[in-house]
Nucleic acid binder design. Structure first.
Lengths: 376, 376
DNA sequence: TGGCTTTAGTAATTGCTGTTTACTAAAGCG
DNA sequence: CGCTTTAGTAAACAGCAATTACTAAAGCCA
């Protein structure tokens, strides 16, 4: 009752059955994240009674979601416990990343985010229904590579994606108002999760690489976008476009004309194509350095108010390593420090993602796990 | 299970009893916000069965939280329904607003946010334990003015206040790490809600004056702070200081030295004392106009990235009406438009709160209602 | 007028939850 | 070898909501 974390309005009834699912998730999550536990351990950790734990575990064992892995050697008084473990081979997840400009990336993934099989297909300019057909084709290939039951399909799409899995608008794919979740759900009759690529990326970063519950992950590629994690929860935004910071005017140097028609957008100095040409047209090392510093300053200017207002504890960059990691990210750090932080405050770290190019795929897998099993 | 709104990690067990409370809130909220309903209406609206509704309503009637108000005259087929209404006299809420520099404001409030009795006390420089004692004294006075059972105490405090009701740091009151919720709870043995004043203000605005679920409310007074509402939920921040934007460098005009030691902070052009002196030292009307425009631009610069990244649909200002409402808020609007919005996009409205000086008191009442009854 | 239909609301049963209590199993300690 | 400690299960119990079957009270219509 005294849940003052400030959720939104109440809008749906709750059945006791959902409480059961919640407790099931609680147990599953404990085993997945903290490793081996006995039933008695689980009862202590989760606050449930031993009996309730036994019931849930019985279900999970019969679904082969867990396995019993014997008793520990550690000699103690009392009956030795039977340790339980999350069964890493219980299922696999099929993930696709549609955010690249030239190809769709696909993978069969394990529960812990490892890539088991990988298949990419060239887009070759396909748009609209053709692009959608290519995705279906890719998924069919991936289904053939499964070596365990499938938990679900995870899709990372560029553009604005609603919470319920409709792509409102994805410029590069020529998609507008396509309910991908419904389409793919009908094709493959299994669970489908769809989300914006940056949103998935930030989730992957949290799940695999960071303990932080409040961070922004900026994806720099053909376009510039970001995913926000606030209090451990993704931010979607009222029109499903939260984090789309590419077209904020950043107020550094001479404002350049953007593809959107405005001047001085962040993308005009930070999108990879623009950065590349600016770097190539710079004759000296100093000039190239300055290009990177300016881009970093631009990003820092946009991020500074966000860091303060949202109390972000980390800024993560995802994109071409060679360009981002160095003077650019350093400039971001310095700009945020000088514009946003109290003099004595510790820096907000600015770092590259450690998940590399698979970040969206891993985020898609995480998303499916969270929606299907309540594990995040 | 397919709750993809991206909550945080699971961290507590759920009992069937909590489902009951949830459904109770659902019914209470429907009656509070939408007015009269019969039991059958409630069943249709909430999705619960008639039987479940009857059970919950029976409880609520016995607690006198609801009242039966007869059958409607509208002649229809079938047994006429017995209409139910939220009992506006069921309880009262005691609220205090500690965010003013010279006095503590207190009120006994009704469930719908009306002020029933009002008592203020002068602070007269009291700090630390003395200030706390003064709050207790004020609350005792307010308890004497109750004419119905008390639902709880709501406290709006300046500074950083944790989700659990501890004031981490409130400069102006000399408070540091004081668990107000525990202290007052022990004194008065009733529910206590404590939150930052700006956070309460934004909640009041949502509840009483706006349908928007994504907005920022900027409080401009001795200091500058803001409260954020994202997807209908308050944002607290990892160290309970989300929204504290007063010390972001805003990059307008010549940077002035701030009390915090940095230069160019938003507060140096927007805090009411600074604004007042700047206005007084301006000899011409044009100069005064420019002061307001500059302040508005400064705020707009800080808000622009927030509006985009968080998809805010409203910017609300709270503070001295005469200063804020006019060129200043207009400058905010224009700055946000030019820095943040696509050329064809509709404006993000910038407006004054309609709740005036009682905004924190009303927010405190709302907070108590939400924590105690699940109504927001 | 009297039967039919419609709507509101309640009573009793059922099924699902987790808890409590009491028990068995298996180990070390002295 | 009995005592203690820990793990885990079995059976009875209590709270919740859904289902089914019912009563109450109105309008409709012949």
């Amino acid at each position: 009752m005294s849940d003052s974390r400030g959720r939104g309005r109440i809008d749906a009834k709750v059945l006791p059955e959902e409480a059961r699912l919640h407790n099931r998730s609680l147990i599953l999550q404990t085993l997945f994240r903290e490793g081996k536990h006995s039933r008695a351990d689980l009862a202590r950790v989760t606050g449930l009674t031993k009996v309730s734990v036994s019931h849930v575990v019985e279900d999970l064992l019969s679904e082969e979601m867990l396995c019993e892995v014997g008793t520990p050697e550690l000699a103690r008084r009392g009956k030795p416990p039977m340790m339980l473990e999350f069964n890493i081979e219980a299922f696999q997840i099929i993930c696709v990343d549609l955010s690249h400009s030239t190809l769709f990336r696909g993978a069969v993934m394990g529960p812990n985010g490892t890539v088991l099989h990988r298949t990419d297909v060239a887009i070759e300019g396909r748009r609209g229904q053709e692009a959608l057909a290519l995705v279906v084709e890719l998924l069919q290939t991936l289904f053939g590579q499964l070596s365990a039951p499938v938990l679900g399909i995870g899709v990372g799409s560029p553009g604005a994606v609603t919470f319920s899995g409709t792509v409102i608008r994805a410029q590069s794919l020529g998609w507008e108002g396509i309910d991908i979740k419904a389409v793919l759900g009908a094709c493959f009759s299994c669970h489908v999760s769809v989300a914006n690529d940056a949103n998935l990326a930030v989730q992957a970063e949290r799940s695999h690489a960071s303990g932080s519950d409040d961070m922004i992950l900026v994806r720099i590629g053909h376009e510039v976008g970001a995913g926000l994690l606030l209090g451990g929860a993704q931010l979607f935004g009222s029109r499903s476009a939260a984090g789309e910071i590419g077209h904020v005017a950043c107020g550094v140097g001479t404002p350049l004309l953007c593809t959107c028609g405005k001047k001085g957008c962040l993308e005009t100095v930070l999108a990879s194509a623009r950065l590349d040409t600016a770097l190539k047209s710079s004759s000296t090392a100093e000039a190239r350095h300055q290009v990177l510093v300016d881009a970093g300053k631009a990003l820092g200017n946009v991020l500074a108010p966000l860091v303060v207002a949202l109390e972000l504890s980390e800024i993560v960059l995802s994109g071409p390593h060679l360009i981002l990691d160095g003077p650019l990210s350093e400039a971001v750090r310095l700009t945020v420090r000088s514009r946003a932080l109290p003099i004595a405050a510790p820096d907000v770290p600015v770092r590259m993602t450690v998940l590399g190019d698979d970040i969206v795929l891993r985020g898609a897998a995480t998303q499916v796990m969270r929606e299907q099993l309540g594990i995040s």
